[in-house]
Amino acid sequence: MAPNWTQSAQWIWTPTYHEEDNQPGREIGKLIVHVSADSRYRLFVNGQRVSFGPCKTYMERWHYETVDILPYLLKGENVLSARVLRYSSVTPGSSSIISTEIPGFLLHAEIEVGVLTPRWHMSIT
């Protein structure tokens, strides 16, 4: 008999998955991240700073940075971390920094996969 949790749990998977894309011999071409925060951030990969920002923004068009973090990744486990600084809109002296009602950090990743070339191969696990 199946445990109770298996009756209520749901499988999670990417909605854009296609079985034909699941082929051996592929390499990661780029690992692009788009990153922003309210108010400032520093993004680290394995302890190395790879990005900071965002540039001064306004509510109608929130800015973010785009960076390829693949060169900073190591074989095996990797650690992505961020340090976020929030400028409060109620604190005097920070009125030139636009802040949302709720502070936060935003990171979106996109993996570009290419065909394996015979010259070299990097595998990220």
Rank of each mutant, 00 (worst) to 15 (best):
R42W: 01
S96T: 15
S88T: 05
Y72H: 09
C55N: 15
I32L: 13
P92V: 09
I102H: 11
G47W: 00
S81A: 00
T91P: 04
S88L: 04
L80M: 14
R61T: 10
I32A: 05
L106W: 10
V115N: 01
T91Q: 11
R42I: 01
W62F: 02
F105L: 06
S96E: 15
D68N: 09
K75E: 06
T57C: 02
N46D: 07
T91G: 06
V45H: 07
L43R: 08
P92F: 09
Y87E: 13
G76W: 14
K30C: 05
C55T: 15
A109T: 13
R61H: 11
D38S: 06
S96C: 13
R26V: 03
A37S: 11
V79A: 01
G93I: 12
T66S: 05
K30F: 06
V115H: 01
L73G: 10
E101Y: 05
V33D: 04
Y64I: 00
P103T: 12
S88D: 06
L31P: 02
V33N: 07
V113K: 03
R86S: 10
Y64H: 04
P103L: 11
H63W: 04
R49S: 03
L74V: 12
P103F: 13
S99Y: 05
F52N: 05
K56A: 12
V113D: 02
P103K: 13
R83A: 03
V45G: 08
G93V: 13
S95I: 13
G104Y: 13
D68V: 03
R26K: 04
Y58E: 11
P92N: 11
I28R: 07
L85Y: 10
L74A: 14
I98N: 08
F44C: 02
F44P: 02
V50H: 04
V79I: 06
F52D: 06
G29L: 05
E65I: 02
S39G: 12
V45W: 06
L106R: 07
R40E: 15
W62M: 01
I111R: 14
L70M: 06
S89T: 08
F105I: 01
G76T: 12
P71I: 07
N78V: 10
F105H: 07
S36A: 11
D38I: 05
E112M: 05
Y64D: 02
A109L: 13
I98F: 12
E101V: 08
E112N: 04
D38C: 08
R42G: 00
S99H: 11
S51M: 03
